[in-house]
Design a protein around this nucleic acid. Structure first.
Lengths: 341, 341
DNA sequence: TTGTACGCGTTATCAT
DNA sequence: ATGATAACGCGTACAA
């Protein structure tokens, strides 16, 4: 018989169905103007033969492929992976696939590397994770190359169709509200690294909230971190070694909060009895340290899904959102301040 | 002039260089039989025009693309991400790209989904992470579909060219050796979930080591976990509530070890003074909990790199290794047992 | 509503 | 050592 063991092509389907390949093509692409009979017949043959359109050939003919890229230089593995899952949620049962591309934001050749990557792979579009999503040159590069892009950020730093953002600033404000309601007045902050928009948003949110409550933030209550565990350890150490130490510390991410917890333990400062700590991210570590960390969680997966939809189905109503509310996750690292304060 | 603003094709290069496109193709593909002059000339034109071959067209003509797939259903984000980095190390500066595909091993449609994925994307090959890498049906599917594959596992469960494996069993033995040298005799184990090869390897390594040292492992020293934090909490709780509790616990992964640490803290059992704990994986959490966890680390990134090379450059000497030694990472969760024992 | 002829950018065959 | 021509599998213009 005619059927070989090779995978069937559109021609095989056309021949078996007794139609032209254009008709098959129309069926695949859901063209409106097709007789029901024809459609049914072709669909039956497709099912029978187990025909799957060749994406490479489609890509060639359509002059665009069906690959979404994920550009990231994110130190937080869980964030990246959750984002990947979210993108997959969006492109499941479509012909799109996700190709990942970790980059090195410290490399002077970063933009050049990415340019080469985009040229070579001719991606349908790219999703960009913080912190490199904050790089405006990168966004400009995408535009220049005609590559769709959506950035993920902690503030709306691009047009609606090019951004999914969390409301970090607001959320830090509610975190501070919560500390103040618990009775804290002397609240310290461990900032994230300079040059990170998220770090800026979080520290400005903190300052705004303190101002709102009429609370002072002297320099001795402010410490600089790098988002890494060790920096949290150091920075919290400084704060706790002040003559009058804070009764609560807001840490700009969970990893530093974990470091702060260590610093407290080393100094026999009990959390949350003597010191309250709030983190940011709701990463897995938050639930797995002691005491379980009260933190701010943001809906990465939903954001990723929306970001991918902005690229592959811009008209979809689920692709319209661009600000995603974070929420306070209350666990056990916050309590009222000790009596003496 | 002739040059439009579109990206140049092989035809443009051929015309500009005054050769046929086949010659250009030969230059790209490093054909041996080419006059040096011609090669130089063409290469100059390629550089000048900024020509980049279109991978979709190549894929179509060659009947295979340059996409590597990563199939995973791994609960550990850092493991997956490290693996991705390792693969990227291998394919950097090549035309290959990495597409990721999380799968759901509990879904009855898993194999069917993967089949559809492979049919549709026509991948060059796939890398498979544990635990689904232990699924022999999946490997058979890859073979059937003519898709290259390399599995990552905790034991050599396939041919050399299809596996990269760590030596979990041996490593657990040295972990136990270390505990015994520190003076421990009553050593408990929290096993990983049944059906996981890694869990089996680790628990058998444990049993073998204990036997070697002439140490008994009564049922009361064995607890069952699921690799999740909560299960470590529960399982360690059981062990610690025995009439005669162990002085050391080997946990089959770090996440459960973190849970065990919590269980100890809840019972005012001090680690490592009253109880020693060893984990497995050397995941980030190991360094970020208190006390920092002594654990077994394996070279994921190197394994990933080797796995990818097995697919894209099987002749490369770096692609020949298939067993990768893990090593004991000593931190602060192990000490000699308390005196009364 | 459906079919014919051709183009997408590359590689392979077989000449020369 | 190099070139003409035909694939590869699909989409589109235009005709029927």
């Amino acid at each position: 018989m005619a059927s070989s063991n090779k995978t069937p092509t559109i021609n095989d389907v056309a021949r078996a169905a007794g139609v032209s390949k254009k008709t098959v093509s129309r069926v695949i692409n859901r063209s409106a103007l097709l007789k029901q009979d024809t459609r049914k017949k072709v669909e039956a043959v497709i099912a029978e033969l187990g025909y799957v359109p060749n994406p490479q050939a489609r890509a060639l003919a359509l002059r665009r492929n069906f690959l979404l890229g994920l550009l990231h230089d994110n130190p937080n593995a869980q964030t990246v992976l959750n984002f990947q899952e979210g993108v997959l949620d969006a492109i499941r049962d479509t012909e799109f696939a996700l190709v990942v591309r970790p980059v090195d934001r410290h490399s002077p050749k970063m933009l050049e590397d990415i340019r080469h990557f985009l040229e070579q792979q001719r991606l349908y579009g790219v999703l960009i994770l913080p912190p490199i999503s904050e790089n405006d040159e990168l966004a400009a590069l995408c535009r220049e190359m005609g590559c769709g892009y959506v950035r993920m950020g902690s503030a709306p730093l691009d047009d609606e169709e090019h951004i999914v953002a969390s409301n970090d600033r607001e959320m830090v404000e509610s975190a501070v509200d919560y500390l103040v309601e618990s009775g804290h007045r002397r609240i310290g902050i461990i900032k994230g690294p300079e040059g990170f928009r998220s770090a800026l948003e979080r520290s400005e949110g903190f300052m705004a909230a303190m101002r709102k409550h009429g609370l002072a933030v002297p320099a001795e209550l402010v410490a600089q971190g790098t988002y890494r565990f060790e920096s949290g350890l150091d920075a919290a150490g400084q704060l706790l070694d002040r003559e009058q130490r804070p009764t609560a510390i807001f840490c700009s991410n969970d990893e530093m909060a974990a470091g702060a917890l260590h610093a407290a333990r080393q100094r026999k400062v009990s959390v949350p009895a003597d010191l309250s700590i709030i983190g940011f991210d709701d990463s897995p570590i938050a639930a797995h340290i002691w005491p379980p960390l009260t933190t701010v969680g943001w809906p990465i997966r939903e954001m990723a899904k929306a970001a991918a939809l902005k690229l592959v189905a811009p008209a979809d109503e689920r692709a319209q959102d661009y600000i995603f509310p974070a929420r306070l996750v209350q666990r056990q690292s916050v309590a009222p301040p000790p009596d003496k304060f």
